[in-house]
């Protein structure tokens, strides 16, 4: 069985991004870029399924600039078998991303797509659900536990009310939550080996049409309203007095 893992190149989660002074965007020049952390978890899960003998090939795919080859190479160093980059110089919104991924799904015929529940740059949380819809297949989103048996996936989902378990027939799309696994560290020999693994690049326009009519336009970027500076108290008594003054405790 083949597993397809879509990944995104994003600003590293440790970077605190700043809005450009003119409000035209987010300053990303020279900042560290990484695999979206949720996608890294998706890669790890696919590799573990392969190591358990439940999958025989893990293919990673990304949509992004040429530099996204770095993140695909990292995925290959983690253990993925081959990689595809759909080149696009411009940011791609979820509907177009899902359409592009659908084309790759139709070509590759995976039985499972595992991907991060959201990218930590635009925080959309849409592409997995959209891909499942366009593919007309089931989804299990926000998954923290996954097992495969008899052409079905049993997935435990992190939902507001607790942990929900559902069963979906394969093929299916799985979106990962943080507690699914802890991704492995890449070792130096694996980085060397990854350089020889196949990485195919093709223009995004090869697989999708024009989505400009569907695009949301961002007209302004701004920093959030900061909270007012607070006060420090020295004792529990002082804290209780302040809370009483604000009418927050009886």
């Amino acid at each position: 069985m083949k597993i397809l893992v879509p990944i995104k190149r994003v600003v590293d989660y440790n970077v605190r991004v700043q809005v450009k002074p003119d409000g035209s965007g987010v300053a990303t020049d020279g900042v560290k870029m990484s695999i979206n952390p949720f996608d890294e978890i998706a890669i790890e899960e696919a590799l573990r399924l392969k190591e358990q003998g439940k999958a025989d090939e893990v293919v990673v795919v990304s949509i992004g600039p040429d530099e996204a080859q770095q993140q695909l190479r990292t995925a290959l160093a983690m253990g993925a078998d081959r990689a595809i980059l759909l080149q696009s110089g411009e940011a791609v919104q979820p509907l177009q991303a899902a359409n592009a991924l659908l084309k790759i799904v139709q070509e590759e015929q995976p039985e499972l797509v595992i991907m991060g529940k959201q990218a930590i740059d635009d925080d959309n949380n849409q592409t997995p659900q959209m891909l499942a819809t366009l593919w007309d297949r089931p989804q299990a989103t926000f998954v923290s536990k996954l097992s495969l048996e008899n052409n079905k996936a049993t997935a435990t989902r992190e939902v507001d009310a607790g942990l929900e378990t559902i069963e979906v027939e394969l093929p299916a799309v799985i979106s990962t939550d943080l507690r699914l696994n802890e991704p492995r560290f890449v070792k130096l020999p694996d980085i060397m080996k990854a350089k020889r693994k196949p990485l195919e690049t093709r223009p995004l326009s090869d697989v999708t049409g024009d989505f400009s009519e569907q695009e949301l336009t961002i007209t302004q970027y701004e920093a959030p309203q900061p909270r007012q500076k607070g006060v420090m108290v020295e004792s529990v008594d002082e804290l209780i007095t302040l809370l009483k003054e604000k009418g927050l405790v009886a």
Partner: peptide, 12 residues
């Protein structure tokens, strides 16, 4: 919000 709420965008 985007970037975990570090940036607020206006979208049309």
């Amino acid at each position: 919000p985007i970037y975990a709420g570090n940036v607020i965008v206006t979208v049309k």
